[in-house]
């Protein structure tokens, strides 16, 4: 479904991604873990070209989205993304946040989009907030809204960029519950950059450990968390799990 070939990314002199090749298959749930500055977020943001790779190729559903002249907007419609800082639209109501893209991009009529949005809001427990503006929502509610906004485009893959890192601790659970529910009920291909090790272990089919711009180790959650081979993985896990 997504195939990455020898991906490099430089920010000026800083070599952030140093040759990443990886494949994500249909319906797979993959967590990307690793220390800060290891390039995990940059890698995720390259997948929908929010960051332009310096070199390398990314194939999404067979199309090389790094090729010149490709209509990336078309492909992005199939790739939902959830951000660390929610990035909900403050000048739109909760309902409009969700219906905006499907209606503008003519995927749905306004009525269809609103009906679907209400169903989605129901699922994440925000139906009573439909007419509110985001500033009246808590962090956890904003992030649930952001997830629903992405799902409303009916994507083929969901990318989560540290979805709980900016949340107050008591709100982490509600957002993780929504992601868990989404994964179970939709079977969507999901890639999550996260610092929630317990969650990564529970939800993932595979875990990638990134360090210094490369995938240093990958495997099933049991392999990575239970029996890590790479000394850097061991060191990282011992730090975060014993914290």
């Amino acid at each position: 479904m997504i195939k990455v070939v020898d991906l490099h990314k430089n920010f000026g002199d800083l070599h952030v991604l140093k040759g990443i090749s990886e494949e994500f298959s249909q319906g797979e749930v993959v967590s990307i873990i690793g220390p800060s500055g290891s390039g995990k977020s940059t890698f995720l943001r390259c997948l929908n070209l929010l960051e332009t790779p310096t070199s390398g190729q990314i194939f999404f559903e067979g199309a090389d989205i790094t090729a010149k002249g490709i209509d990336i907007d078309k492909h992005r419609q199939k790739m939902g993304m959830v951000f660390q800082h929610f990035n909900v639209f403050p000048h739109k109501s909760v309902l409009e946040n969700i219906t905006l893209a499907p209606v503008l991009l003519k995927k749905k009529t306004k009525e269809e989009a609103q009906k679907q949005a209400m169903e989605l809001l129901q699922r994440v427990g925000l139906a009573d907030k439909a007419q509110e503006y985001p500033k009246r929502l808590s962090g956890g509610q904003k992030q649930r809204l952001a997830i629903v906004r992405a799902l409303a485009m009916e994507p083929d893959v969901m990318l989560f960029d540290e979805p709980t890192s900016a949340l107050d601790p008591e709100m982490v659970g509600e957002v993780l519950a929504v992601i868990r529910d989404m994964v179970r009920t939709t079977g969507l291909t999901t890639i999550i950059v996260t610092h929630e090790m317990g969650f990564a272990r529970e939800i993932s089919d595979r875990v990638l450990f990134m360090d210094e711009g490369v995938i240093a180790e990958k495997g099933t959650p049991q392999e990575i968390f239970g029996n890590p081979q790479n000394p850097r993985t061991k060191e990282f896990l011992s730090k975060v799990l014993n914290a």
Partner: peptide
């Protein structure tokens, strides 16, 4: 970024 990620 959020708007572009939705395909706008």
């Amino acid at each position: 970024e959020a708007a572009r990620s939705l395909g706008l």
